[in-house]
């Protein structure tokens, strides 16, 4: 089996993470924001798997499972919130939720 440089795997995780970050920062649609968050979470999971593969241990996969659980719970709550927001404001524009300003 050929080997892969570890930094390539991590850089891939970094690229996916930054793409997700750009999505969070630019999109005004809440659903897109949530999807971008999923991308970022997935990127961090990828980093764990890469590290796990480097050492040949199962701990990284365990952490990935935890992240997966977290993502599932977060999406469930987040989508519930989106439904609530849409019901109240009839829009998915996140900028309408700016009442808590100083």
């Amino acid at each position: 089996m050929e080997s892969i440089p570890i930094e390539h795997g991590l850089i891939l995780a970094g690229i996916l993470f930054t793409l997700g970050l750009i999505g969070v920062l630019t999109r005004r649609n809440i659903v897109f924001v949530l999807m971008s968050l999923e991308i970022m979470l997935n990127a961090s999971g990828l980093a764990f798997i890469v590290a796990s593969a480097r050492w040949g241990h199962a701990e990284g996969q365990v952490m990935f499972l935890m992240i997966l659980t977290l993502a599932a719970a977060e999406v469930a709550v987040g989508l519930g919130l989106i439904i609530q927001v849409y019901r109240r404001y009839q829009t998915v524009d996140i900028n309408v939720l700016s009442e808590m300003k100083g």
């Binding site: 080997s3 440089p5 570890i6 930094e7 991590l10 970094g14 480097r54 040949g56």
Partner: peptide, 15 residues
């Protein structure tokens, strides 16, 4: 990130 990560120079052999 790339700058930091590129300092690692380790091969990864998938097990």
């Amino acid at each position: 990130l790339v700058n930091v990560l590129s300092q690692y120079d380790q091969e990864l052999t998938p097990v």
